[in-house]
Design a protein around this nucleic acid. Sequence first.
DNA 1: TGATAGTAAGTAAGTAATTACTATCTTACA
DNA 2: TGTAAGATAGTAATTACTTACTTACTATCA
Lengths: 202, 202
Amino acid sequence: MTTHTKHMSADERRTATVEAVVELAARHNPSEITTTAIARQMGVTQGALFKHFPTKEAILEAVMGWVAERLLARVDQAAAAATSPLLALEAIFMTHVDFVAEHPGVPRVMFGELQRARMSAPKRMAQALIRRYGERLHRLIEAGKASGELSSSIDTAAAVTLFVGTIQGLVMQTMLAGDVRRIRNEAPGVFALYRRAIGSRP
Amino acid sequence: MTTHTKHMSADERRTATVEAVVELAARHNPSEITTTAIARQMGVTQGALFKHFPTKEAILEAVMGWVAERLLARVDQAAAAATSPLLALEAIFMTHVDFVAEHPGVPRVMFGELQRARMSAPKRMAQALIRRYGERLHRLIEAGKASGELSSSIDTAAAVTLFVGTIQGLVMQTMLAGDVRRIRNEAPGVFALYRRAIGSRP
DNA sequence: TGATAGTAAGTAAGTAATTACTATCTTACA
DNA sequence: TGTAAGATAGTAATTACTTACTTACTATCA
C-alpha cells in the first residue's frame, strides 16, 4: 500500500529501480538501457537515481541480486514439492520457463553481463547464480540415476549443460518470434525430449 | 600472399574489417566493439573505415553475410557427406561446434543482433540465417522419422529448438569457463544425449 | 498540539569522456 | 599524373556522473 506521496523511501526506490530495469530489458537491448531510460521509466529525473545508487554498475548488481533471490526461491520451492528427482527437474523446468515468460528481460540481462569482457560485480553474480543453479541440477540428476529413474549411463555434466541450453533455446525462439507466449506453449514439447534424453528406458 | 604494401584494395579491406570484428567479438562484448576498436585491430585510423563502409551498421551487415555464407557452406558440406539423417545431424552439430570454437565471437555477435530493439539489416540477416538453418534441421529430422532412424513420435519443431539450444548451452558454458577448448571436449557428450532424445529405441 | 528545523528525495543544468561520422589534406601506386 | 586509400583533426550527439538548489516529510520541543 503505497500512499500517494511524491517522495519514496530509499528501499522502495531501490526496488522500483530494479523493476524498471527488468521491464526495460524485456523490450530493449541491455546495453541500450541508459540511466536516462531507467529514470524515464520510473517517472523521475536521471540525477535522482544517483541518490540511491553510487554507480550504474551498482544498479545492475542490485538487479542480479533480485534475479538470483527470486529465481532460486521459486525453483527450490518447485523442487521441494516434487516426489521424485525427474518430477523435480520437470517442476524446475516449468517454473524457470514461467519466470522467463513473466520477466523476458531477465535472460537478456544475464547473458549481457556474462558477455562483458572485464570482470565486474554483476558479472560475478551472474556466474554465481548459474553455478548454484547447476549444482542443484547436478544433485537431482545424480539422485535420479541412483534411484533408477534416470539412465545411469548418461554424463551428468552434459545433462546439466543440456538442461540450461534447452531453456536458452526456448529464449532464442522467443526472441526470434518476438512473442513471449510462445515459450510457454513450446516448453512441454521440449521438456518431453529432454526426458527422453535422460530417462531410463523401460 | 599479400605483398607488403601500405594500401590495401577495397575488397581486401572489407574482408579484413569483417575479420577484425569477428576477432574482437571473441574477447569483447559486441556492444563495446566501436569503430575505433575495429580500426585499431586493423592497424589503421578510425576514419579509414568509412572509405569502405558508409556506416557502422553496414560493417555489421557484412559480418552477418560473412557468417551466413561460411557457416551454411560448411554445414551443408558436412551434411552432404553423411550417409543417414542422424549421421548428418551429428556432422552438422560437430561442424557447428568447430566453427564456434574457431570463431567464438560469432554467436555473441549473432545474439547481440537478435537482442536489438529496432529492426535493422544485420538483425534481419541474423534471423534469416537461423531460419534457413532451422529449415535444414527440420528436413533432416523429418527424413530421419520417415526412415525409422528417429522416433516418429517426437515433435519436430521441438527437436529443432533443442538442437539450437544445445549449441547455445555449450556456448554459455564456454563463456562461463572462459575457455574455448572446453566446447570441443563437451560436445560429444551433449550430442550423445541429444541422440537419445530423438533416436528411435532399439 | 503546532510551529519549525533538519534531512532525505528530487530537480535542473551542468561536466568530461566517448560515440559514429566527416571535411580536408597527404601519400602511394598504376 | 590521376586516383584510390589513408591520416589528421575535427563535428554533434550521447553517455555516466556531479553540483547547486528546491521540495516534502519527520522528529523535536515550547
